Amino acid sequence: MSSRKATHAGSWYSSSGAELSQQLDVWLNTAELLHGPARAIIAPHAGYAYCGECGAFAYRQVSPAVVKRIFILGPSHHVRLRGCALTTAKTYTTPLYDLNIDTQTNTELEKTGAFSWMDAKTDEDEHSIEMHLPFIAKVMENFKDQFTIVPILVGSLNPDQEALYGNLLADFFTDPQNLFIISSDFCHWGNRFSYTYYDRSCGQIYKSIENLDKKGMDIIETLNADAFTEYLRKYNNTICGRHPIGVMLSAIKVLERKGYLMHFKFLKYAQSSRCKEMHESSVSYASGSLVFEC
């Protein structure tokens, strides 16, 4: 496959380049630069009507003049994948402009023996990576010929596998010209998600969901991979990007042992709707940024 199509354009976000560019501009100009320059961000991957404004807070922390290579770690929603997979495409299409794949880095990662390859259908069906592409294109538009992307589809990893991939990717985090995008929505609540955890001491259901999410967000801010794993075991919170997050936290664990100082901060939280009744449902979104201290 030479080029991956923008298969979710027109449904999950605008297929009009002009309209999409204007919409992204509004969100990015509204968000504040509070915690940058980002070396990694966590941002959502739902339809832009639900999470676009939230996602902009993460992308606002990116310094486009510095970035040359962007890793995108997205969870697999449609295929069973026990490890991580790379794309065979040479470019990814967006309504703004095409993004070039870093085939040299793909070759380097393949040589580790830890990565497989996505087939074309898996690649084009998956939204967890695609939903970040317009944001990348917009933020990097003044440098559009000066960067490449490395999409990585992340499967259902156990903690040992998260540690393995974190170790393989850790050195890439140390280069300020690299940016990591960790694609994740947060709690998927409701019967249709088979998850209805409700702590009534919090009040309304949506407040319980927020409290649950923020417990996890607080742990992510501590950069403690083991504590995040334990949180997931305790609450089973349906954070769909938990494995990409686990890979990032595992990489940070490696770097902390080498003496690197890093700080993560969440900047925005939102829910698709405020659930008050047990028959309702919602998805939560959070955006945050990782910086390296001098």
Rank of each mutant, 00 (worst) to 15 (best):
Y59D: 06
Y59T: 09
R60G: 10
R60C: 04
R60N: 03
V62Y: 06
V62W: 04
S63W: 02
S63R: 10
P64T: 08
A65H: 11
A65T: 11
K68P: 05
K68D: 05
R69I: 10
I70N: 00
F71E: 02
G74V: 04
G74M: 03
P75R: 03
P75K: 01
P75E: 04
H77P: 00
H78E: 02
V79L: 07
L81E: 06
T87W: 01
T88V: 03
T88K: 07
A89E: 07
A89D: 09
K90F: 07
T91K: 11
T91S: 04
T91I: 05
T93H: 14
T94P: 07
T94D: 05
T94Q: 02
T94F: 08
P95D: 14
L96Y: 01
L96A: 09
L99P: 06
N100P: 04
D102K: 11
T103N: 08
T103L: 15
Q104N: 14
T105M: 12
E108L: 14
L109I: 12
L109H: 06
E110W: 04
W117P: 08
M118W: 01
D119Q: 01
K121C: 01
T122P: 07
T122H: 05
T122W: 08
T122Q: 15
T122E: 14
D123M: 01
E126M: 13
H127I: 10
I129S: 02
I129T: 10
I129M: 14
M131K: 05
M131E: 14
L133A: 13
I136R: 14
I136M: 09
A137W: 11
A137D: 15
E141N: 13
K144Y: 05
Q146N: 14
F147R: 06
T148H: 06
T148L: 06
V150Q: 05
I152D: 03
L153S: 14
L153I: 12
L153N: 03
V154Q: 03
V154W: 01
V154M: 05
S156E: 15
N158T: 06
P159C: 00
P159S: 01
D160R: 11
D160E: 11
E162N: 11
A163Y: 02
A163P: 00
L164P: 02
G166Y: 08
G166K: 02
G166M: 10
N167Q: 15
L168D: 07
L169T: 07
F172I: 10
F172L: 14
F173A: 07
F173K: 00
P176W: 09
L179V: 12
I181G: 10
S184D: 15
S184H: 12
S184V: 03
F186A: 03
C187N: 11
H188Y: 00
H188C: 01
W189F: 03
G190P: 09
G190K: 06
N191D: 13
F193K: 10
Y195Q: 13
T196C: 11
Y198Q: 02
R200D: 14
S201Y: 13
S201H: 14
S201E: 15
C202M: 13
C202Y: 02
